[in-house]
Design a protein around this nucleic acid. Structure first.
Ligand SMILES: [Zn+2]
Ligand SMILES: [Zn+2]
Ligand SMILES: [Zn+2]
Ligand SMILES: [Zn+2]
Lengths: 165, 165
DNA sequence: AATGTAATGTTATAATATAACATTTATGGA
DNA sequence: TCCATAAATGTTATATTATAACATTACATT
């Protein structure tokens, strides 16, 4: 019984991203409904923009896109929406890039491990019990109590290094 | 044969920090000498300021301190020194805090794992082969080639949660 | 409708980091 | 020693990322 999850794998270039997007928005709607939270138009729009693709998106890029629809948007518009989405597990921040990725597994807040391709920018997200347990074990040895884990691994995805040379 | 290293443990409150500082500067001098690099006064001063304690230090705090000695310092002064020190493994950046910690193990560049206490701010640094190998194994499964690892674990150090309640 | 709370609008500013170019300082060879 | 070069630093300006503070609007409950 292994609870390791691949929350979001690297996608083949051919994949139908519209489906990713739709299912992410649907999941977010359902999650908010169940939790009695409001997925307001701004929040939904920001979430859609984060889900443009499988690469981390910058807050000010989101802002630029928001402004195209509604010129009154300002930084707090974006950061508030991102804060809400992060609190609900609908978005994660990639600390080493100051950028944000969508997550379609909001049911339970989780600590993820991210694998980020330096070449194409794609991100894969795992929720891997083996990694969590190992970190837990290491921490336990010196009496450290883990509250939050940040694991961001940079390198090359399969496609990129296979096509690379 | 286990190559796991505790590069920097959590220190007892009583520890003689002057010794940490001195040995870190000495190690840096030796490292630069061996590598034919120049640990200039600015670089050494920045390194000393990073080693003020075992908490991550902010670039602009370093800058404020530099200015006390020499009012001509500006952001590039600090960031250039930090870049140099990071390239040489004398300093690491904690991405999730936008802050910098000293490393007294510059001989070989390494990927570290950081454990950071949310309460007292102290940081412990490991260079743990078990963690690296597990991440490697996980990455390998989907053909990912690791170039760089960021592992930053937040929580409470032993002292803080023992004294906490 | 009256009230309280949540969300958004708006302006300003804080915090982090880099670009670009000028000047100075070290270094190694003629 | 002197010069040519590269390395390091100085200086000014600006880019990027994020938050503070307060006003206004929308929503839900009574
Ligand atoms: Zn997709
Ligand atoms: Zn790639
Ligand atoms: Zn110390
Ligand atoms: Zn602590």
């Amino acid at each position: 019984m292994n609870k390791n999850k691949v929350i979001s794998p690297f996608k083949p270039a051919s994949h139908q991203h519209q489906k990713c997007l739709k299912s992410a928005i649907d999941a977010a709607k359902k999650h908010c409904e169940l939790s009695g939270l409001r997925l307001t138009p701004i929040r939904q729009r920001v979430l859609e923009l984060v889900w443009q693709n499988h690469e981390p998106v910058k807050a000010y890029d989101i802002l630029d896109n928001l402004k195209k629809g509604k010129s009154s948007s300002a930084p707090p518009t974006v950061y508030r929406a991102l804060d809400f989405l992060q609190d609900e597990g609908l978005v994660h921040k990639i600390e080493s890039l100051n950028a944000y990725v969508g997550c379609n597994n909001p049911k339970e807040l989780h600590n993820s491990q991210f694998f980020i391709c330096d070449d194409c920018g794609a991100v894969a997200e795992l929720d891997d019990v083996d990694i969590r347990e190992l970190l837990q074990k290491k921490a336990h040895r010196f009496g450290f109590r883990i509250a939050d884990e940040m694991v961001e691994i940079k390198g090359q995805c399969k496609e990129c290094h296979e096509s690379g040379v």
